[in-house]
Amino acid sequence: MKALKHIFLIVLTIGWLQSCIVSEKPNIDFFQNSKYDFKGAQFASINVPMVLAKSYIKKALREEGESEETIDLVKKASKIKVLTVTNGSNEMLNDYAQFLNDNHYEEWATIKHDGEHINIRVKQDGDAIKNMLITVGSSKNEMVFVDVKGNFTANDISKMINSVSDK
């Protein structure tokens, strides 16, 4: 029985560690479409294990001087996926935006700063927001996509957007 517990703990630990591995395969729905021609775009993706990462993320945000609204938002997150794209195109970004529109994501904010465009879209289920997608695009055809799942309110996200906009 004791050996069975040890094996279970080892398998569980390996499962957590595997989710930390960076992959060259996209981990966000639109980019997993094998029929779409990405025209030489290169991907790097990571699934962030929240059990391990929450305390590190909150500490880093505090050290960077981020607002408590942003830190509170991290507390409510249950899963984060990050995808970076190199050699992306505006056409691909436009197709991604259309994909989000077709899947009922609402645009909440677009922020432009130093040549970068930050776009925040959410998917609501009544008053609850279960999914938030953040897109960061630069003029150098490099993009970052962050898919955040959790249990947020409109007020949570509005506070976070306002705190970022004020900076």
Rank of each mutant, 00 (worst) to 15 (best):
E66L: 13
E69A: 15
E142H: 14
T70W: 02
N87M: 11
E64Q: 06
K5H: 15
G15Y: 13
N162C: 02
I134S: 07
A128Y: 03
K25S: 08
I118F: 14
N33V: 03
M160T: 15
N155Y: 07
I134Y: 11
E63W: 04
P49M: 00
V22P: 05
A41G: 14
A97I: 04
V136T: 13
E64W: 07
K79C: 00
A109K: 05
N90D: 07
V144E: 03
L52K: 06
V22W: 13
A44K: 10
K2W: 13
T70S: 14
I46A: 07
G126L: 07
S89Q: 11
K159C: 08
E68K: 01
K159D: 09
H104C: 00
D156C: 07
V11E: 05
S138E: 14
Q98M: 01
I10P: 00
S89W: 09
G65C: 04
E116I: 12
F145T: 08
I120C: 01
L12A: 15
I21F: 14
K5M: 13
S78V: 01
R62L: 01
I28W: 10
V148H: 07
M143A: 08
T84R: 09
R121W: 01
N94W: 02
E69K: 07
I57Q: 06
I157C: 04
A77Y: 01
I120K: 00
I10N: 06
V144H: 08
K39E: 14
Q18T: 14
I14R: 00
E24G: 07
L9T: 14
S23Q: 05
K58M: 04
N27A: 10
N47Q: 09
T110F: 05
A3L: 12
I80E: 00
S163P: 06
P26I: 02
K130D: 11
I134V: 15
F43R: 01
Y105Q: 00
E107C: 05
E142P: 12
N151P: 02
E24S: 08
E63I: 05
A3G: 05
Q98V: 10
K130R: 12
I71S: 09
Y56I: 13
V11S: 08
M160S: 14
I129H: 02
I10L: 15
D125A: 12
A44V: 07
I10Y: 11
D147F: 07
E63T: 02
M1T: 11
G40C: 04
A77N: 00
Q32E: 12
D102A: 12
I157F: 03
V144S: 13
F31R: 04
L52P: 09
K149G: 09
Q32A: 04
K81I: 05
I28T: 12
K140C: 13
V164E: 14
S78L: 01
K35F: 13
L73C: 09
F152Y: 14
Q98L: 04
M132P: 01
A77L: 02
N151M: 12
F152K: 06
K130I: 03
V11W: 00
V82F: 10
I28G: 04
T135R: 09
A77S: 11
Q18E: 11
L17W: 15
A154L: 07
E69S: 14
A97S: 06
S163G: 04
Y56L: 13
R62I: 05
K167I: 15
E69V: 01
I57K: 11
E91H: 10
Y56D: 03
Y105L: 01
